[in-house]
């Protein structure tokens, strides 16, 4: 029997605590697959967020550090500066990276920290029950924008990938989605490139991963996937936003 698909080794064999249809599980599976393919599990340290994936450390057979809300890039900086030969990645949601932690991720990118950051964008604050996030789309109804996001009063959605690409320290910025197998394969390639950016010392790498949130959007998983395709991707275009081929990095 040839194995077409199996759980990656670094992903621990226990059920995910995420909602049905949430793409945290997909994103984390892809990260585990890439870590296995690159053979770096022994030297990889993850830094987790506060949010739906606060228990991320339960699912990876890796050393993990849990930090305060939004501060993962700063914690990861502390870890990487202490252990420059290890591979350090951070994993955050909308609130963590684009609200409370915006200063930390911007400066992490600006310094060209040799870490790999993952941003799961579901256009709401998931864990706390679906409030408006910096990434909420205009007109989108959430528990703190019950009439729909009014850009005159509540501003505009945040394009974090494009913003971080401005920093000279950013070497690889990509935005992906996981709504069908083709996009999943593309996403996995971007995740691998993001890790290699760190390993080859090119600079800071970030992959923004669009995700459905069926529970807080009030949709079935299939409807939520369609909402990512029809509403989110037009606003948050997929692709490699920045690719720096060579790095002049001395971190």
């Amino acid at each position: 029997m040839r194995t077409i698909f199996e759980r990656p080794k670094t992903l621990i064999d226990k059920p995910f605590t995420y909602c049905p249809g949430c793409h945290h599980g997909l994103a984390q599976r892809l990260i585990a697959e890439v870590i296995d393919e690159l053979g770096i599990a022994e030297k990889t340290i993850g830094v987790g967020p506060v949010g739906c994936s606060v228990y991320i450390y339960e699912f990876f057979d890796l050393d993990f550090v849990m930090g305060a809300h939004g501060r993962a890039p700063a914690v990861a900086t502390g870890v990487k500066r202490s252990l420059p030969d290890q591979v350090v990645f951070s994993y955050q949601g909308d609130g963590d990276i684009a609200a409370i932690g915006t200063a930390e991720i911007v400066h992490c990118a600006n310094r060209g920290e040799l870490i790999t950051s993952f941003f799961v964008n579901n256009a709401v604050f998931g864990m706390t029950g679906g409030q408006m996030a910096p990434t909420t789309l205009p007109g989108q109804k959430t528990t703190t924008s019950p009439l729909g996001r009014n850009t005159e009063v509540q501003g505009f959605p945040f394009k974090l990938g494009e913003m971080l690409a401005q920093a000279d320290g950013s070497a690889y910025i990509a935005r992906v989605a996981l709504t069908n197998p083709r996009l999943i394969s593309q996403a996995k390639r971007c995740i691998k490139k993001a890790f290699l950016t760190q390993i080859e010392k090119k600079g800071f790498a970030l992959v923004e991963i669009l995700s459905p949130c069926p529970t807080n959007w009030g949709m079935t998983p299939q409807e939520a996937v369609r909402w990512v395709e029809e509403k989110m991707i037009p606003y948050f275009p997929l692709g490699e936003i920045k690719v720096k081929e060579s790095g002049s990095h001395a971190s």
Partner: peptide, 18 residues
């Protein structure tokens, strides 16, 4: 030199955990 005292204490947290 961190971007703020908040970032600094969290970098301390990261380095201390190693």
């Amino acid at each position: 030199q961190a971007e703020s005292e908040i970032a600094a204490i969290n970098m301390v947290y990261g380095a201390s955990s190693t």
